[in-house]
Every structure is written in C-alpha cells, then in structure tokens.
Amino acid sequence: MNQQLAASVSRTVQSRLVLPPDTNHLGTIFGGTVLAYIDEIAAIAAMKHSKGAVVTASIDTVNFLSSAKVGNVLILEGVVISTGRTSMEVYVKAECQSIETGAKTLTTTAILTLVAVDGNGKPTPVAGVSPETDAEKQLFKSAQARKDRRMKINEFAKELV
C-alpha cells in the first residue's frame, strides 16, 4: 500500500474526569487506569488511520511525569507517528487540567505499536503516514531506532524462554 495519510487523520483527543474510584490512597490516579486510557486512545487513533480493527503489539515507553488528582480533567491525545507494512506507532500524551485554574500539566507520554488486522485476525497492510508538526517529524525520524530496539528486546525475550 503506497498511499500516505496525514498524521492529522488519526489525531484523537479524549477528556476524562478523575473520580475517587480511579485513584489510590494518595488521591492520585492509578497508573493502570492511565495505561488503560492510553491503550484505548492509541487503538482509536490507529483504527482511524487503518480504517479497521487493530490489536496492541507493544507499549514501548510510558513516562509518568506527574499525577492527576480527583477532580482534575485528564486530556489524552493520540496520533499515528510512523507505520510499517501492517503496524502503526502511536504517540500518546496525557495532560491534567485543573478545573479551578485551567492550568494544564503534562502527566504521561507513551509510544505504542498497534497492528491492523482483518476479520480473521490476520495482519493487513496500512497506508503510510505523513508527519505534519515538528514533534511528529522528530518522532517519525526516530522510528527506525525504536523498531530496532523492539526487535532486540524481542530476541532477548525469546532467549530467556
């Protein structure tokens, strides 16, 4: 598939209110809850790009930079930043916003790899992606290095078995 899609085709934004059941004994959101939100928005962005079903192949990096507290709004944004034949890398950032002040703080960043699948669950080709913003262009340029690192980690994991 030689078609290229603009990164903005996949861009997805969600807002979530942080509620007491989402938090730990310190009143901050559980990391696992944030991971579930990240996986969901990455899947939606990848589905918009591939125009079909996807599965998560890996979560390469997750950086928890700060916490969201009860009453904050968590704003998640996901965008496809690079593609392989059937795979898509998705960058997700999460910010928390104070309702009282409107101030936003970056809380989490992540890069995930998702694979487009057909009705039988078999990988299916995806269009390429054209980065638009400076950040997308930077992430696009470093995609091969991340892929090489994933491959090394996969080989190492196989040796451990």
Rank of each mutant, 00 (worst) to 15 (best):
105 T>A: 10
127 A>S: 14
98 S>G: 04
139 L>S: 03
122 K>L: 15
152 K>H: 07
82 S>N: 05
57 A>F: 08
34 V>C: 13
85 R>M: 15
74 L>Q: 01
83 T>P: 10
19 L>A: 00
109 T>F: 15
150 R>Q: 04
85 R>Q: 15
4 Q>R: 13
100 E>I: 08
131 P>H: 05
156 F>E: 03
11 R>F: 11
70 V>N: 02
96 C>R: 06
80 V>N: 05
79 V>M: 13
28 T>H: 12
49 H>M: 00
92 V>L: 08
121 G>F: 02
79 V>A: 14
67 S>V: 12
24 N>Y: 06
63 N>D: 14
19 L>E: 01
101 T>F: 11
112 L>G: 04
12 T>M: 07
42 A>C: 03
100 E>H: 08
11 R>E: 10
132 E>V: 00
99 I>P: 10
160 L>Q: 11
112 L>I: 04
39 D>M: 08
45 A>F: 09
65 L>T: 05
65 L>G: 06
110 A>G: 07
142 S>R: 10
112 L>A: 05
140 F>P: 07
33 T>H: 15
25 H>W: 01
31 G>K: 02
74 L>D: 00
98 S>E: 06
104 K>R: 11
154 N>Q: 07
137 K>W: 01
151 M>C: 04
122 K>V: 13
74 L>A: 06
84 G>P: 05
159 E>M: 10
7 A>S: 08
126 V>T: 02
41 I>S: 02
73 V>I: 02
124 T>A: 14
16 R>E: 02
29 I>D: 10
114 L>G: 09
140 F>R: 02
9 V>I: 15
96 C>S: 09
19 L>H: 00
18 V>L: 15
157 A>Y: 12
110 A>F: 06
55 V>R: 11
88 M>W: 08
137 K>L: 03
157 A>C: 11
128 G>E: 12
159 E>V: 05
129 V>R: 13
87 S>M: 11
48 K>M: 04
36 A>K: 13
16 R>H: 01
58 S>D: 00
142 S>M: 14
97 Q>H: 07
144 Q>A: 06
64 F>Y: 15
4 Q>F: 10
6 A>S: 02
67 S>W: 09
154 N>K: 12
160 L>A: 05
58 S>I: 00
73 V>W: 07
67 S>P: 12
72 N>S: 10
144 Q>H: 09
153 I>L: 05
6 A>C: 01
91 Y>N: 09
48 K>N: 04
156 F>H: 00
88 M>I: 03
40 E>F: 05
60 D>R: 01
146 R>G: 04
13 V>R: 06
108 T>H: 12
76 L>T: 14
96 C>A: 05
121 G>Q: 11
15 S>L: 08
138 Q>H: 10
119 G>D: 13
95 E>G: 02
100 E>T: 10
32 G>E: 15
153 I>V: 04
103 A>T: 09
157 A>E: 15
120 N>P: 00
161 V>C: 04
53 A>I: 13
109 T>M: 13
42 A>L: 01
43 A>V: 00
39 D>C: 08
52 G>S: 12
88 M>A: 09
161 V>E: 03
109 T>N: 14
129 V>Y: 11
73 V>K: 06
46 A>P: 07
38 I>Q: 05
124 T>Y: 13
135 A>M: 11
149 R>V: 03
20 P>G: 01
53 A>K: 15
89 E>G: 03
